[in-house]
Structure formats: C-alpha cells, structure tokens
Amino acid sequence: MAQANLLNELIAGLRCLPGVGQKTAQRMAYYLLERDREGGRQLAHLLDASMEKIGHCQQCRTLTEAELCNICANGSRDASLLCIVETPAEVAILEQSIDYSGRYFVLGGRLSPLDGIGPKEIGLDQLDKRLAEGEVKEIILATNPTVEGEVTAQYIGEMAKGYSIRATRIAHGVPLGGELEYVDGGTLLHAFAGRAEFMQER
C-alpha cells in the first residue's frame, strides 16, 4: 500500500475527474511535477478561483461568474424564444452547433421521483415565474429522449399550456449518416411517429 503523502494525495485528488483512473491520475501528477510546474500552478489558481466565483445565472441558471450570463445579458437575443435544457454543457453544444437567437433555461437535472427530484428541485417554480411575465412566446423543449426527459418535457409543456405559450419539442429519430438497418427499434418508432412534411409548400 502506498504511503499517505502529498504526492499520493494529489493522485487521489485527480481521480475525482470523470474518466480519470489511477493510471491516468499518476501520469497527470508526475507530468505536472516534473515537466510543467508553471502550468500546474496556474491550474491550481484557476480551479480555486472558479470554485469560489462561478455560480448560476439568476435568470437561466447556467454557469457564470456574473449575475447574468452572457446570453441573458445580451439584449439583441430574442426574449420570446426560450429553450429548455437539462445541463449547462448542453447550452454550450447548442450554441456551437445551431443558429439560435433565443434564450435558454437550464434545469440542472430532470424530473426523477425515484431520485427524489421533483418540480421544485429543478427550478420549475422559477421557470413558472418567467413564463408568467408574459415575454416568452415559445418554449423549445430540448430535454433528453429518456423517460425522465420525456416526463420533464411533458410537465413543462403543461405549464406552458396554462399560460397559452406555444411549446415545441426537439425531434428525435435516425441520426445523420446513419442507416435504418442499424437503428434500434425504439428510435425507429419515434422517428416514424414524428415524421414531418417533406415537400413543403412555398
């Protein structure tokens, strides 16, 4: 058994990162100590500052060190469109990949009664207030296509209906470049049920 010293503690500490096991943690620790102490110091400083300062945006609950995140603070973004996602990481990936000019609301989870997560725990009271303000005209439900994601979408959809706000759900189906033969049955079922008009009138 390895002795408890600072080096071992560092290795054990690095293992809290996702995807990092004993071997990788060891490599990281030795690399920083032997090759890149400056980088290590900077990382330590940044980690410390981030853990201290980064909190949640007061409006959309994504991660930010300011009171409002860049998207919420940006006046030129369309406040009548609200996209509901489960995690801050999803905001980032959506921002990179699609041309979306509306705003976001980050739940930070999904409805899952067996995990003790109900409407309050994912900030739906806050969302309710936002919808009540009347600025939002359409919500885009971008929760994941799992049972819990579906339940969450359903619940929020009903909230929107109460305020006569249009609710849309992102499509799920065959992935781009995929082949029908290799797609699982459940996905095909959804793809078929959610088929869209192809030859649209102009």
């Binding site: 409805l111 009664p113 067996l114 003790g116 997560i117 109900g118 409407p119 309050k120 739906l124 009271d125 309710d128 207030k129 339940v151 619940y155 009903e158 909230m159 109460g162």
Partner: peptide, 17 residues
C-alpha cells in the same frame, strides 16, 4: 410520501416567494 405524486400537481410559486 411518494415523490411521483408531485407530478400530478401543477407547480405553484411557494409562499415565501
């Protein structure tokens, strides 16, 4: 209590708000 029962109730802003 059963947590899933909360799903059947619409959310109300809590009193403290």
């Amino acid at each position: 209590p059963l947590k899933s029962r909360e799903l059947f109730r619409p959310i109300k802003p809590s009193l403290s708000d």
